[in-house]
Structures are given as C-alpha cells and as structure tokens.
C-alpha cells in the first residue's frame, strides 16, 4: 500500500503545482480577471471601494492585493470549496460545477469506453490481417482521414447535417422534453439517444490514435520470439492473439487511457456546447463567451483536478492488475 500512498502524494503535489502555476499565469498576465472586472464595474459608475469589494465577492480575491496573496487566497478558496460567485447566473460557482459534473462524467466515460473497445479491436485487426494489403490500406486511409478532422468540425458537420438538416438523430439537449429526469427507463433511454450523435463524434475522432498505436504494438509483439515459438508449438493464431498480445499490451493501453481521458475531457468544451448539452465543457465555453471569470477559472481548476484524479486512478488500478508496476518504480 506504501506504493499507492506514494502515488497519491505525488499526484497531490502535481495537482497543487499545476493549479498554482495556472493561477499565477492568469493573475500575472496582462489580462488579470480581477483588474478587468474592476475596470468593468468602475465603468458602470460604481464607486471604487464598492467595486473592489464586489470583485472580491465574485472571484475570491481582490484586484488591489499582490499576486502572491491572490494566489494563496484563491487556493484557499479551492480547498474549502469556495470558488466564488458566477457573474451571469449570480449563484455560487461550486453549485454550477456540481450540477455539471455528473453529465460530463457520463459523457466522457461513455465515449472513453467505446473508444477503447473499438480502438483496440480495430488495432488488433490491423496487426493480425497485416498481410491483407487492401484491408490495411483502406482501414488506414479511413482512420487517417478521421485523424485529420478536428472533433469540433466533425461535431459541426454532424450537427448541421445528421441533426438539423436531415433530422436523423437528436442534436440539441441531453434528453427530450417529455421525460421526467430521474431513475426511470424512459429518461435513461432518452439520454442515451440524445448522446448518440455527440458520442459518435468523440469516438470517431479518438479511435485513430488508439487503432494506430495498438496495431504498431501488436505488430511488434507478433515479431517477437515467443510468438514464433508459440506458432511453432502449433497454437492456433486466435489463441496466440488473445493470450499473448492482449496480455502484453495492457500497460500501453493503460497509459493511453489517461491521455485519452484528458483529451475527451477537453473535447467536451466543443462538443457539449455544440450539441447544447449540460456539463463542464459547455459551462466553460458559455461562460468564456460571457467573460464570467469566476466560473471559467473554477471549471478550469476542476478539470485539472479531474485529469490528475484520472491519471492517479489508472495508475492505481494498473498497479493492482500488474504487480510489476508496483516495484521498479522510483
């Protein structure tokens, strides 16, 4: 367990540094939000002292204090769960974020599991049928094309055509208006149906990286001596494929999961706002457009936290699956 504790402490340190550095970059940049907000309030004719207090109430630190004090005060707020108050919605940022988190968790984990399953399957198929040039070429071409389409462009195209123009799938909102939110079958079915299009975009744009990575790895493993030996012993190819390749590729798969998780989480900024879904991404996108700084920075900090937790989670679960990972690490 010592090892798990060490990992957790390391993650905590990385989280602290990442958040601190981001806050410092933000307050030291020429666009310090506290100052911008102050200028805005002053322009509305609010007296200086009152404006300073308002900024402090919204974002958690005052425009008049030095950078280190802003940083410390904001960090203290993060630790105590006080992320300030939204300017547009006039409610605590923490509450807005709490409402958004379940939606993003659902969207990202749903897309992530589909991406991993399909990506690994396609990757192994590419490696296994590598002598079939036509298959490899056509799959590779399709994957490269999807690799070169930014996810927000695919989202826009699907939104316009599959959604708005052809009305094939729902393209706005998380569920239809005629169901009552809660743990009922209609609601869950409606949510899954409404997330079909967004999830398609997520999965299609993240599969290529997985498929290429897995296929390169599986091809390398197929050339190893123990595979030749297994073939020589007369093991059926399918057995070789599953026992050797899948077992040897667990580590890279795990390492990739954390990266893809981060990538999908960032992708929600575009996808949730495109398909008008609730969640951290759309919250960040809409409040960025409205210059609602307390929410923006709050969501940013939460997203960083989620990324650190995601990485820690994959590290720990991997450590439990493969004891080799627990030793040998410094």
């Amino acid at each position: 367990m010592n090892w798990a504790l060490r990992k957790a402490i390391f993650s905590l340190a990385a989280w602290f540094l990442a958040v601190s550095i981001s806050i410092l970059i933000i307050v030291l940049s020429p666009g310090d939000p506290a100052l911008i907000m102050l200028t805005g309030f002053l322009q509305q004719g609010i007296p200086y002292d009152q404006a300073v207090r308002m900024v402090q109430a919204y974002i958690g630190f005052s425009p008049a204090e030095p950078w280190w004090s802003k940083w410390l005060r904001y960090l203290l707020g993060v630790v105590t769960g006080n992320l300030g108050v939204s300017i547009t919605y006039r409610i605590p940022v923490a509450q807005l974020i709490a409402n958004a988190i379940p939606w993003s968790i659902f969207f990202v984990s749903y897309s992530l599991s589909l991406t991993v399953i399909l990506g690994v399957l396609i990757g192994i198929a590419l490696a296994y049928y590598r002598s079939n040039t036509i298959f490899v070429r056509s799959v590779t071409t399709v994957l490269t094309v999807f690799n070169s389409i930014p996810n927000w462009i695919l989202a826009a195209v699907f939104f316009v055509y599959i959604g708005a123009r052809w009305q094939l799938l729902p393209y706005m909102g998380p569920y239809s208006n005629d169901v009552t939110p809660g743990l009922n079958l209609q609601f869950i079915a409606s949510v899954l149906y409404h997330y079909t299009l967004p999830t398609m975009v997520m999965v299609l744009t993240s599969i290529p990286g997985w498929a290429f990575g897995i296929s390169a790895m599986a091809s390398a493993i197929l050339k190893e001596d123990f595979i030749t030996y297994a073939k020589a012993r007369g093991l059926p190819s399918s057995r070789i494929l599953w026992t050797y390749i899948t077992r040897n590729s667990i580590l890279p798969i795990y390492a990739n999961i954390a990266i893809t998780f981060t990538w999908l989480l960032v992708g929600t900024v575009w996808l949730e706002s495109q398909f008008l879904l609730p969640g951290l991404g759309s919250l960040l996108a809409t409040t960025s457009g409205a210059r609602d700084y307390p929410v923006m920075i709050g969501v940013y900090v939460i997203l960083i936290t989620a990324i650190v937790l995601g990485a820690l989670f994959t590290d720990l679960t991997y450590g439990f699956i493969d004891p080799r990972a627990r030793v040998g690490e410094t």
Binding site: I21, G31, W263
Partner: peptide
C-alpha cells in the same frame, strides 16, 4: 496535467 488547449482557452479569453 495541464492540457494546452484548456489553458490556451483561458488565456485567449483574458488576454
């Protein structure tokens, strides 16, 4: 742990 586009987004807004 800091995705480029995430921090870039914040910076693009505040700059």
């Amino acid at each position: 742990t800091i995705p480029t586009y995430l921090l870039a987004l914040i910076l693009v807004v505040i700059l």
